[in-house]
């Protein structure tokens, strides 16, 4: 992920009362924040509200931002908590981490399944498969593949250990493969 060194200076200007600097920060990151939240909540209107909530909370907490860390990971931490709170309040399905993130099991490779994945290159199919995943899997895939966050940046943004990041990514990608097949992509 491209970390913008100018962010800390903009935060400093915001703290000094320069609201135009905050406007710049919003413009710089609103698409990223909105896109990841949308991946989680799957509703454009809710996603936009939650993305705005994220920036409002960020503005009010700017004095607690530590410029040693990238602003974007700090912002995504707020976005993550905001989206998770929303999902919980709506009693949406949030992944049970105890079950899903147990240590990796020894799994057999299914040659038929793997070969049929070769046919999968349709972007809309990726979207459909992604939509069926639990929110936290959609979120981590968006952070890794859409935002190009590193393991450590994801760890920082989500407040989870790097090991958990790897396991969650592993599970999310494997689930994606399975979902793609159940969406009707033919085997060999």
């Amino acid at each position: 992920m491209a970390h913008n060194p100018d962010d800390a200076a903009l935060v400093g200007r915001c703290l000094g009362g320069d609201n135009a600097a905050f406007d710049k920060l919003i413009s710089r990151y609103k698409r990223q924040v909105f896109s990841v939240i949308y991946r989680m909540v799957r509703n454009p209107a809710d996603a936009e509200d939650l993305a705005q909530d994220t920036f409002i909370k960020a503005f009010r907490a700017l004095s607690s931002y530590d410029p040693k860390f990238p602003f974007i990971t700090w912002l995504f931490k707020i976005a993550h908590n905001t989206a998770i709170d929303h999902l919980r309040s709506n009693k949406a399905q949030v992944l049970s981490l105890d079950i899903e993130e147990s240590p990796l099991q020894d799994e057999c490779f299914d040659q038929t399944l793997m070969d049929s994945i070769d046919a999968l290159s349709d972007k809309s199919m990726i979207d459909k498969a992604l939509a069926t995943l639990p929110p936290v899997y959609r979120e981590i895939l968006a952070l890794r593949h859409q935002q190009e966050f590193s393991y450590s940046e994801i760890s920082e943004a989500l407040g989870i250990p790097e090991g958990t990041v790897k396991i969650r990514l592993f599970r999310a990608r494997n689930l994606m493969k399975e979902k793609m097949l159940t969406l009707g992509y033919p085997g060999p």
Binding site: D23, I26, S27, K30, R31, Q32, F34, S35, Y38, R39, P44, E48, A51, Q52, L113, M114, I117, D118, L120, S121, D122, K123, M125, I126, D127, L130, L141, A142, R144, H145, Q146, R173, M176, K177, M180
Partner: peptide, 22 residues
């Protein structure tokens, strides 16, 4: 298979917010 999934995910677009967002 994993590479195919990852490449598909890499193409996920960024969505635009409404014009009056800021």
């Amino acid at each position: 298979a994993l590479k195919m999934v990852a490449e598909g995910l890499d193409r996920m677009p960024l969505y635009e917010t409404s014009p009056g967002f800021n």
